[in-house]
């Protein structure tokens, strides 16, 4: 799964689960998800479960940090690095 695919699926998931009714173009790759209040603890856990299932990776609790999850771009990079390491 390449970065673009990960970005697309992550964006779709976020829009569907957390931002229903929001215009897709408003959610960019750099939109702040954690500091912007989109990814709270519950949303983070839902997203993690989704990424683990969809991308075949295992995420550790101490990886739930803004550097990995604060934007779609960060998430894509993080997932790809996880996939590469596994």
């Amino acid at each position: 799964m390449n970065t673009t695919q990960i970005r697309t699926m992550t964006r779709d998931f976020i829009l569907k689960e957390f931002l229903p009714g929001e215009r897709p173009e408003n959610l960019t790759d750099s939109t702040e998800l954690i500091s912007g209040g989109i990814l709270d603890s519950l949303a983070t856990l839902k997203l993690v479960t989704y990424l683990e299932k969809s991308c075949g990776i295992e995420i550790a609790p101490d990886e739930l940090v803004p550097e990995n999850l604060n934007s779609i771009g960060h998430i894509a990079d993080f997932v790809q690095s996880k996939q590469a390491s596994t």
């Binding site: 931002l19 929001e22 408003n26 939109t31 912007g36 209040g37 989109i38 519950l42």
Partner: peptide, 17 residues
């Protein structure tokens, strides 16, 4: 409250929404 939000979702908005 968290259980409710897990099952029924919570209205979130992008900044300025």
């Amino acid at each position: 409250n968290a259980l409710y939000e897990m099952r029924h979702g919570r209205t979130r908005r992008l900044r300025g929404g």
